[in-house]
Amino acid sequence: MAKGEIVLGCLAPHPPHVVYAENPEQNEAFAEGGWETLRWGYNRLARKLKSIDYDAMVIFTPHWQTYIGTHFLGLPKFKSKSVDPVFPNLFRFNYDISVDVELAEKMCEVAGESGIVTKMMRNPDFRIDYGTITSCHMLNPEWDKPLVTISSNRNAHYYSPEVMNEQASALGEACARAVEESGKKVVLISSHSLSHRHFVTESPLPEDMSREHIYNHSQYVWDMKLVELMRGGKMREVIDIMPEFTEQTIAETEAGGLTWMMAAMGYPEYPAEIYGYQSVIGTGNLIAAWDPIEATREIVL
């Protein structure tokens, strides 16, 4: 069996607003649009994914929060409705997803062998979080690839962002070994915003773009610093400053997603593809991808 490989890594923020604005038939709410910079960036990255041969998407989500280890979805099908507890007015999504249980079990096994506390989630009533659904829908609206969803163990809450970085790195390295042993081609997805301070009010029409801006300039400057490093192929440096970035901007990187993905991909020294940056209810959201194959790597923006 040939070695498996990671064929692309995606930073894919999950504000439910982008699904809301797309008006897919699965979502009950209706929008007049909004957040086009993000949505069009997502649309372009989704087109790139169509040109790539892969077997499964592996997503690390901040909205399945676990404190007792790292958990993996462990049943082949989940069909239900996901309602965002924070923005239920925007996101009530009827989903029908397939899971690559074999790959999930492999990751769980290898992570466990690495000393990471793990658990397979096999309760059929379990509801898929809106982070998983938003990122995966925007990257693959046809939903024709199986997923592996990995919970986010909240080390930053219990210990510190430094411990989070260490633990997420170990998990990333374990997942990379599991991918190799599986013989599969996978796309990794780190589902989160960068800076993550929200406005606590919402405009009467949520998609009123005249009201949308970053929470404050400090958040913006930090976000742009990360974008600059990503463009420069300095992902080791990004992960090194991750604890400070996370604390300074209340960043959603606290869940460990970007660290996990970069560790799994060996801290790329090549430029990230930048697909778009836009604020959503004050948070900073970047869509980016890391393509290991130089021939297909693009300068998108």
């Binding site: 958990h71 658990k119 309760n123 009533d125």
Partner: peptide, 13 residues
């Protein structure tokens, strides 16, 4: 609804 806890899903629905 039928709710399942994020951490303690193995205890049941």
């Amino acid at each position: 609804w039928v709710h399942v806890d994020d951490d303690f899903h193995y205890l049941g629905s």
